[in-house]
Design a protein around this nucleic acid. Structure first.
Lengths: 250, 250
DNA sequence: GAATCTTGTTCCATAAAACGGAATAACAAT
DNA sequence: ATTGTTATTCCGTTTTATGGAACAAGATTC
């Protein structure tokens, strides 16, 4: 895959230089023939990976903003969240999930089971219900009003368990409570026998970029422990939000 | 340039999805044969453009962070600065320069002459003396101590005009004054007959990412007007810094 | 303003690299 | 153990990239 490697070399040279470069300079710096450099730059330009100004000087294009943003959101979120989740997990020894919220959908991307990281989950791509899970409710609770309206309108609320709450207005009500408390909860709404607390991870615009949850078998997750675990989830999510927002600044 | 276009398509699909994808899914989404997809992904992976986790799921790699950063610094700086410079130019009708500070070097990247944008300058790549120009001095004045020491050590101070100040200690002295005032000045230090004021553009870490200057023929740039123009440069640079830092947050 | 240098662009025969259908191997799920 | 699914490798064929050299377009000098 020669062209690709060469294209990468060219992009790196442009990136290192940091200012627009002419084709001769690029070809010298990359040690590639001028004709070849020219051809590759042409192709890169068609894809908006490089821009050419009126003096035929090339510089990197805006396409990378999009890709970098995407990288930051998925891979970056895991890298940043991992140590915090690990710490939380050592404190409580329960199952912890990390979820990413992308394109108005939530996906599990990371999981720790009793202090042992399971890592990237295999079944990525499967949408996760927002109305019936701890993570989902955490996300819904911090959504701007109009986004929540839109979600409730387009979504069928299904009885995933006998207990699932499918009344839209009552759901709105508890989401408001979750927002005030800073964490969400859920008792066998999505899966029989499992009870959860969750909290949202926010980006620098205070929009949810993901969420975390603590899942515990319902029989040993008594009411009186909900607030304790909820606050743990809330605090951990806040730490992640702060680090994530910060590391995303430049 | 087929491979390149296809690689871009693959990267876009990964970016749109936002979470790791398997090769089958990618090949379906891109409408490319699986073997081809596999080959291209392999090449992308070698260059760290994509990452593969333990479940053979692909996601975008960290290389884009670097490129996006580079794009933001050069092209982004011009886009952000342009309207502010335009406004300044309409107020004073004098020549204005925008400079980028990259790899410890400064380069002119944009110029407005008497309210008329000249645009990207052709002679990019030519290093600009920091000790004798308005923009350069503005940058030096806000540099951390050790960076300034290092600059003064490695740089030969040449008499570019009969008036050029080449005494290191006296230069240090006036740089300190510039830092306090928030703008730099220079009278026929770099070019006979031209007098300048300048101000640095700072990123979110308070390091200089560039600078602007106002250049006026010395005969009509009297001492009493220096402070007025200096403050204009300072205020404009501050506006640009704020917008640049802000837009760079995510 | 003509001549000269420099830099960008196009050409094209040749060599090399990508192509992709199909076979195989590695996993999961049943 | 079996079946279904997904990833990987193979390899003859075709397409595509290659790059030296010629050409064109600017820029610079005289």
């Amino acid at each position: 895959m020669k062209v690709l490697n060469r294209a990468v070399v060219i992009l790196n040279v442009l990136s290192d230089k940091g200012i627009p470069m002419g084709i001769t300079e690029i070809s010298e710096e990359t040690v590639l023939p001028k004709a070849t450099t020219h051809r590759i730059l042409g192709a890169l330009q068609e894809n908006y990976l490089v821009l050419q100004d009126r003096h035929q000087q090339y510089s990197l294009g805006p396409a990378f903003l999009r890709w970098a943003y995407s990288y930051n959101r998925s891979r970056g979120l895991i890298d940043i969240a991992r140590p915090f989740l690990q710490e939380l997990s050592e404190k409580i020894s329960e199952t912890i999930h990390l979820v990413i919220y992308e394109n108005r959908k939530a996906y599990y991307i990371y999981k720790i089971e009793s202090s042992h990281p399971v890592g990237m989950l295999s079944r990525t791509g499967t949408e996760l219900p927002l109305y019936s899970t701890g993570v989902g409710r955490a996300i819904l609770s911090v959504l701007p009003q109009e986004d929540l309206d839109e979600y409730l309108e387009r979504t069928d609320l299904l009885k995933r368990t006998p207990d699932t709450l499918i009344d839209r207005e009552r759901l709105r009500g508890i989401l408001k409570e979750f927002k005030d408390k800073g964490y969400s909860e859920e008792n066998q709404q999505n899966e029989v026998g499992i009870r959860c607390v969750g909290a949202a991870i926010l980006d620098s615009n205070h929009l949810p970029t993901g969420a975390i949850s603590i899942s515990i078998p319902a029989y040993r997750f008594q009411d009186k422990k909900v607030d304790e675990y909820g606050m743990l989830a809330k605090n951990t999510a806040e730490l992640i939000s702060r680090t994530f927002g910060w590391s995303n600044q430049d």
